[in-house]
Amino acid sequence: MTVRTTADLALESVTVVHGTGAARTTVLDSLDLSFSPGRLTALVGPSGSGKSTLLAVAGALLRPASGRVLLGGEDVVPLSDARRACVRRERIGYMFQSGNLLPGLTALDQVLAIGHLNGRRVSGLRDAAAAALESVGLAHRAGHRPEQLSGGERQRVALARALVLEPAVLLVDEPTAAVDRSQAAGLAALLGDAVRGRGRTAVVATHDPAVVEAADEVVDMAALAGGQRPRP
């Protein structure tokens, strides 16, 4: 099914199959889905419904068995591994469920690292990195290493890193899975702020009602498999 046609990120007839033989499972079956700029879309559904797989396909981390993944109108599926890595670092911001941060690096260095991966001069990115940390309320923790931060603070550092280079697309996987309720609400609000009014396309896989509440659209993966459209 096609939801919209003017989106920055769209999946067309995407099929993903895991395993072979008797263990073969079709996780996404001819899925058509597009995501609107400036809106936060929450992917919900039980474990195994394909939320993370959809993020992997949309984020050029996983090549589908068939179908197209359009990012700014360009199909990233047939690109070489090197080009797909380039797409990931230049056009997509990622925030993962856990293990987001590099051990031993301060919060500021974590944010600067993404600039380094993009071949940017780190010295020219310091102000932007400091501003990104400030936008997630962690300016005062810039010099702290991961083991000195709480779970919620680590996720906010990851969000600052994902946003510092102003990517067109933000993909987030279970951002509140390892944080307490009070921090989850704050993180959900920050995600909404990072998207709205900025023309950025954001997709978040979540089980958390606080994140669902903050989303502009919700895609129920279980229902989608049954042919239902996303609900606003």
Binding site: L61, A82, A85, C86, V87, R88, R89, E90, I92, Y94, F96, G99, N100, L102, I114, L117, N118
Partner: peptide, 11 residues
């Protein structure tokens, strides 16, 4: 993590 963030193999 670095590969997921798009780090080139060469880098």
């Amino acid at each position: 993590l670095l590969r997921a963030l798009g780090a080139a193999r060469r880098r």
